[in-house]
């Protein structure tokens, strides 16, 4: 039978959440008095280029050794980082994709079997079918990404004579909109739309997947939407009429450290 492990009753988690929230969470907004306090605290904080993650005890967290690339070149990382930040930007609700580590998440995914379409049917012939038959490419995702990033960079140079990461937010949005509409072509038969959709999906994945994958840094993606992550049981809150906020837990909580 299943093992019981590391299960914390939600009411206890909630107390911990309340106790630690002021120190631990920048940008999470929850309802009522607590929400106001946190939001207020966040606004007072001076903006910093890179986040300084803290642990619930308040100490500065150790360096994040996960933030290096397995696949991307530095330039690819920068373009990706700039693009995903526009898809899911930082605002007064909390961090954007860049701060959440989404670009690293994407890098790590491209270096995984998924990046080379490992569990997908790859036998030809590749024939362009109807829209109802799927938008499949004969090249794998790493190649789509390489070419897609080049297409973004080239479109930026052509339109603004500047590299994509150096564009203003409005300019970046204009390029991404052209991409989304298919007005930028990635390579023969692959429109920008396919690549944009891939980028958008990956952005949401990187914001909300378990932090073990390199995104959703410090579970901040989850905190913004009050998602409790990996909890063992909700049986005792199912019949409650009010919303129950909990301190999120990740899969790391299942491993003995």
């Amino acid at each position: 039978m299943a093992e019981q492990h590391n299960y914390q009753p939600p009411d206890k988690s909630r107390r911990q959440f309340l106790k630690y929230s002021g120190a631990a969470i920048s940008g999470a907004v929850i309802g009522g008095v607590i929400g106001g306090a946190i939001a207020g605290g966040f606004k007072k904080k001076a903006p910093v280029p890179t986040p300084t993650p803290t642990t619930p005890g308040g100490q500065a967290a150790a360096a994040d050794y996960n933030q290096a690339t397995m696949y991307f070149t530095q330039s690819q990382l920068q373009i990706t980082q700039a693009a995903v930040e526009r898809i899911f930007p930082k605002d007064d609700l909390g961090p954007g994709a860049a701060e959440l580590g989404v670009a690293y998440y994407i890098d790590h995914q491209l270096a995984s079997p998924w990046g080379i379409n490992g569990r997908e049917y790859r036998i030809g012939p590749y024939v362009k079918g109807e829209a109802t038959q799927g938008d499949y490419q004969s090249i794998n995702r790493t190649e789509v990404f390489n070419l897609g990033l080049i297409a973004i960079q080239q479109a930026s140079m052509k339109k603004y004579n500047n590299k994509f990461p150096d564009l203003t937010d409005e300019q970046k949005d204009a390029i991404l909109t052209l991409l989304e509409k298919g007005d930028i072509e990635v390579i023969n038969g692959i429109t920008g739309t396919s690549f944009f959709n891939l980028l958008r999906t990956l952005t949401l994945e990187g914001a909300y997947a378990d932090p073990l994958y390199g995104g959703n840094k410090n579970m901040q993606g989850w905190k913004m939407r009050k998602y409790p992550g990996n909890q063992m049981s909700y049986a005792n809150i199912m019949e409650k009429a009010e919303f129950v906020a909990m301190k999120p837990m990740s899969l790391r909580d299942h491993i003995a450290h």
């Binding site: 569990r119 049917y121 036998i123 079918g129 799927g134 499949y136």
Partner: peptide, 23 residues
Amino acid sequence: QDLSKETITFRNTSKMTALPMRS
């Protein structure tokens, strides 16, 4: 199922050429 080994092909009507569901 690992689609790299096996999948299905699909078309809306018999006038179309069926293509594999690749993912």
